[in-house]
Design a binder for these strands. Structure first.
Lengths: 144, 144
DNA sequence: GGCTTGTATCGAGGTCAGTCTAATCAGCCC
DNA sequence: GGGCTGATTAGACTGACCTCGATACAAGCC
């Protein structure tokens, strides 16, 4: 992974952790954009299975060669899907000798899960959520 | 909503509740297909904001007229996105007099969140998860 | 019954995403 | 170095998706 990707990744989970649950208050356009990139990355059955295969694989990581043989798809196609997952920040890849191993970023998955439910208060501290007016400027509050 | 959509919806949350978390074991092709439909529906920033607007709106429901004015998009486009969310089972719509009101299906969101994290055992009872061989036949187990 | 307002559907456009083959890069081994 | 295997990149094709204007439907009001 590139240095830039690493930088992006490190802040991703923390950033998502700052999002209030979907049901608590309207998402800003910016928040929706970032979250939708993650959901879009998971919006493909092949990528979802790849994610699951990597996550559930012994040792928490899986070689690309293990993943390719499960699907009736060409290696470049699998590589493409892995790239999408990687660029979304859901997985990281590392080359060791001949093989490339992928592992998931559990923090990102957990943060994503936290967005979907009315999380407990300690999951989304008030001081970190997005009730700051400047973070919501793009989305007018809609009253009945 | 049509009778068929209602039938589909009623079983959706329960069905998702039977899925083991993504990280516990590989998803079958069938599971991945259903989950990816949901994630794909949320993989658009407009739809994510719609979902959030509906979920966080006073009374737990929002009129289409409330939603349309937030975006710089035509009414048919908003209607289209609402249809996608509706057909995915994430929201339900009901006409009352002139207006149509939408509300979310919290069970589906919660089930989706449960898939993303290594859930506590009581969230995914062993007797209900997908370790049944016939449910996994499409996905060979990949060993190291 | 006509008119107005609120939603949904239809059909078309332009763009994006998934897949492939062919070619390229990265490491190992002879 | 040359060849081999594993993985990615490049380019092209096809199909799906997002958006719109035009149209149709639904409900209330004159």
């Amino acid at each position: 992974m590139s240095k830039q990707e690493q930088d992006t990744l490190e802040g991703l989970a923390a950033q998502l952790g700052c999002y209030s649950p979907l049901v608590r208050e309207p998402l800003s356009g910016e928040q929706a954009g970032e979250l939708s990139r993650l959901f879009k990355a998971m919006g493909d059955p092949v990528r979802l299975r790849l994610l699951s295969l990597i996550a559930s694989h012994a040792g928490g990581e899986a070689c690309v060669c293990d993943l390719t043989e499960v699907f009736d798809l060409s290696a470049p196609t699998i590589s493409h899907h892995l790239k999408v997952l990687r660029e979304a920040g859901l997985i990281t890849g590392e080359r060791r000798a001949t093989w490339v191993y992928y592992r998931i970023e559990p923090d990102v998955l957990e943060a994503l899960a936290a967005v979907l439910v009315p999380a407990a208060p300690d999951t989304v501290p008030d001081g970190l959520n997005t009730t700051r007016p400047e973070a919501r400027r793009e989305l007018p509050v809609v009253e009945a």
